[in-house]
């Protein structure tokens, strides 16, 4: 790592202002992506603004029609939360499948959502459930939040404080893992919500996480794996790498969507 200053503000406002005054500051949540990137010397922030000192950024609550997860809540806490398990079991299962146990003990929902890694799991859940990302400045719907690979609607000094997930009538997530990194080659989150069916895909597209409207429409009238079985996702615009060609990813999107729908019941 390159040298940096470590700051530990005790409020969101202080964190935001610390970032504003740093030369090239970065927020540090769980650090599960940022620290490895810095170890490889691929990032060289002047200051790490550590959000761990802010007491009121951890916790999970029942909002009646869903759950609210504060930004610094770990994946392990979400996976193990009886509230999440009861309200949105698919979300608890998704969190329990992120990385490995030690990563889940440090990694946070806010960090994952803010980072928007194109192969991360949480963005698919946010988009699939129609979550609302709450910051120190505003509330942003998931559909407007994820804007591209590692890109979000967040401003530089904007801090995610919580993510609000509405419960769905049915939901499930199916991930096809990269055999090496175990990140998603393709992950599909499906949900039957009050506003209709939602299908969100991570890992596949060159534009990052996104929805598949053709599948959502097909599921609107017929919530079954068969409804999407014949929908061929175009390979154009999908990622190609040594683990999966665009054509293979396209095939996996449909396959994982079918499996997710079946799993959702």
């Amino acid at each position: 790592m390159y040298s940096f200053n470590h700051q530990l503000p005790n409020s969101v406002a202080a964190a935001s202002s610390a970032l504003g005054s740093a030369d090239d500051g970065k927020f540090l949540a769980g650090g599960m992506t940022l620290l490895p990137t810095m170890k490889q010397r691929l990032a060289s922030p002047s200051d790490l603004i550590d959000l761990a000192g802010i007491g009121d950024l951890v916790g999970i609550s029942d909002s009646g029609d869903g759950v609210v997860i504060k930004a610094m809540t770990t994946h392990a806490a979400v996976a193990g939360s009886s509230v999440v398990q009861a309200k949105i079991p698919a979300l608890a299962a998704l969190a329990g499948g992120i990385g490995d146990p030690a990563v889940r003990n440090r990694g946070t929902i806010g960090g994952s959502v803010a980072n928007n890694d194109p192969a991360a799991d949480y963005p698919a859940a946010c988009l699939g459930l129609g979550a609302t990302i709450v910051t120190n400045k505003r509330e942003i719907g998931a559909d407007d939040f994820f804007t591209g690979l590692f890109e979000t609607a967040l401003e530089e000094d904007e801090v995610i404080t919580e993510v609000r997930f509405p419960a769905a009538q049915k939901a499930a997530y199916q991930k096809f893992e990269n055999p090496a990194s175990r990140y998603a080659i393709v992950g599909v989150f499906v949900a039957q919500t009050a506003g209709g069916a939602r299908v969100a895909v991570t890992g596949a597209s060159q534009d990052g996480v996104g929805r598949i409207s053709e599948m959502e429409q097909a599921l609107g009238g017929n919530w079954s794996a068969d409804a999407v079985a014949n929908i061929d996702v175009p390979a154009d615009g999908l990622n190609t790498d040594i683990h999966a060609s665009a054509a293979y990813r396209a095939h996996l999107v449909t396959t994982m969507a079918k499996r997710a729908i079946a799993a959702a019941g």
Partner: peptide, 26 residues
Amino acid sequence: DTSQCGACVVHVDGVSVKSCTMLAAQ
């Protein structure tokens, strides 16, 4: 150096963490 192998796992406040992916300051 990519937080994958787990040779560095220790317990911090009772849970397992990868000590190569955590600052001493944390």
